[in-house]
């Protein structure tokens, strides 16, 4: 993918819809420009031959010296830890009755 031809305005609208974002008509071309610039930047990676490189989504194993844990050694034991005090949680909530989070009525989009 390269240049401005990659992401169309329709793509921008679709992604915005999936992200529950409402873009103004002025924002749409700006987003298109930004997205294409980012994708163009990333596209440089396509110049590398990665056919022999296994896909990797995170770097934890590398930090661990490529150790392979086949027995769940790095997993968490099933032991209860204290939860956070609700008053502290609700202090940061935009809207609450002290027990629940409150959000604007959910309507299926």
């Amino acid at each position: 993918m390269s240049g401005q031809s990659g992401v169309t305005i329709e793509d921008v609208r679709r992604v915005a819809e999936l992200a529950n974002l409402e873009l103004t008509p002025e924002e749409e071309p700006r987003m298109q420009r930004d997205l294409n610039a980012i994708l163009g930047h990333i596209a440089e990676l396509n110049e590398l031959n990665t056919s022999d490189v296994p896909p990797m989504a995170q770097v934890g194993e590398m930090l661990d010296g490529n150790a392979v844990h086949t027995h769940g050694e790095t997993l968490r034991a099933d032991l209860v830890q204290p939860s956070v005090d609700r008053a502290a949680v609700m202090a940061s909530a935009p809207e609450t009755d002290g027990r629940f989070f409150k959000v604007p009525k959910v309507i299926e989009r």
Binding site: L79, V80, Q81, S83, V84, R86, M90, R99
Partner: peptide, 15 residues
């Protein structure tokens, strides 16, 4: 490590 239990006072099994 939050407890996995049905019900409970709302929003008390959270981290």
């Amino acid at each position: 490590g939050c407890v996995n239990r049905y019900g409970g006072e709302p929003n008390t099994h959270v981290c």
